[in-house]
Amino acid sequence: MVTNREHWVVKSVRIKNRIHRWLDIRFPEYRQAFDDILVIAHWLPCAGSSPSDILQLTSEQMVQIWSEMTRPGGERGKNKALELQSLARHSVGDTSALEEDKWELRHLIEEYERIRRIIDEADQMIEKGAA
């Protein structure tokens, strides 16, 4: 089971690296606002995925989307939304083939979440076997 789990961990790292690459190409400034890649990667498909899409939202709309994802709301969330909009306003990210890339990001995130569930299931099986 441990070998199986390791296989899925390697797959999850590959997917996470592809998500990093996507963000580095489309919205390289995101790291200035978020330490955790998956925070913004999960949020971007809801917001439209590109810096120009982010600029079409108000900070209140962004906080609303985050609150649905159990991210911080209130003043902290609003400040983070304003920071992200400022970064989006000056982004140097690639804007060609955006629709195709939005599709890709959505599927990468779905695949990452699916693999994480498999890893969690493997962890539970390993724990049962150790008990």
Rank of each mutant, 00 (worst) to 15 (best):
A41T: 11
Q85E: 01
V13G: 06
S91F: 00
I15A: 09
I19H: 01
W8F: 15
K102S: 07
E104C: 11
S12K: 09
G93T: 09
I40T: 09
E113S: 12
R76I: 13
T58I: 11
E104I: 15
E60T: 13
D101W: 02
S49M: 04
M62V: 07
S96M: 11
I119L: 02
E6S: 12
S96N: 07
Y30I: 04
D94G: 00
S12V: 09
E113Y: 07
A130P: 00
E29K: 09
V9E: 12
N4W: 03
K80G: 00
A97S: 11
A47Q: 06
Q64L: 12
W66I: 00
F27K: 03
W43S: 10
I54T: 04
I118V: 15
W66Q: 08
E104K: 09
D53S: 14
S50M: 15
M69C: 05
K102Y: 00
A41V: 06
I37L: 14
H42C: 10
L38G: 08
S50E: 10
H42W: 06
L38N: 09
H107V: 00
V13H: 05
Q61P: 08
L108E: 04
Q32K: 12
C46I: 11
W103F: 15
S96Q: 11
L55Q: 06
Y30H: 13
V39R: 10
Q32M: 10
G129F: 02
R71E: 05
W66F: 03
R18T: 08
L105E: 04
S67L: 12
T95R: 15
F34N: 03
R5V: 07
R114E: 09
A131D: 12
N79T: 06
K78Y: 15
D94F: 05
D123F: 03
L23W: 03
I126V: 09
L82Y: 10
D101T: 04
M125Q: 13
S86A: 15
F27D: 05
K16Y: 02
Q124Y: 04
G48R: 03
H7W: 07
R14S: 14
R26S: 10
G74K: 13
L105W: 02
G77K: 04
H42E: 13
S50V: 07
G77P: 06
D94Y: 08
S59P: 09
W66D: 06
V13K: 08
S12W: 00
D53C: 14
R14T: 14
M125K: 12
L82W: 08
H42D: 12
V2K: 11
G93R: 05
V10Q: 13
R5Q: 14
W8D: 11
S67E: 15
R116M: 15
L23H: 05
I118C: 09
T3M: 09
E121G: 09
A41F: 04
L108V: 06
D35T: 04
K11F: 04
L108D: 02
E104Y: 03
A88V: 01
L84V: 15
I126W: 01
S91M: 01
L105A: 01
E104N: 07
P45W: 05
A122I: 00
S52C: 03
G73A: 05
S96A: 10
E75T: 14
D24N: 15
P72D: 00
E60G: 10
R116N: 14
G93M: 06
I40R: 08
S49Q: 03
G129I: 03
R26G: 02
A130D: 06
H107M: 02
S91L: 02
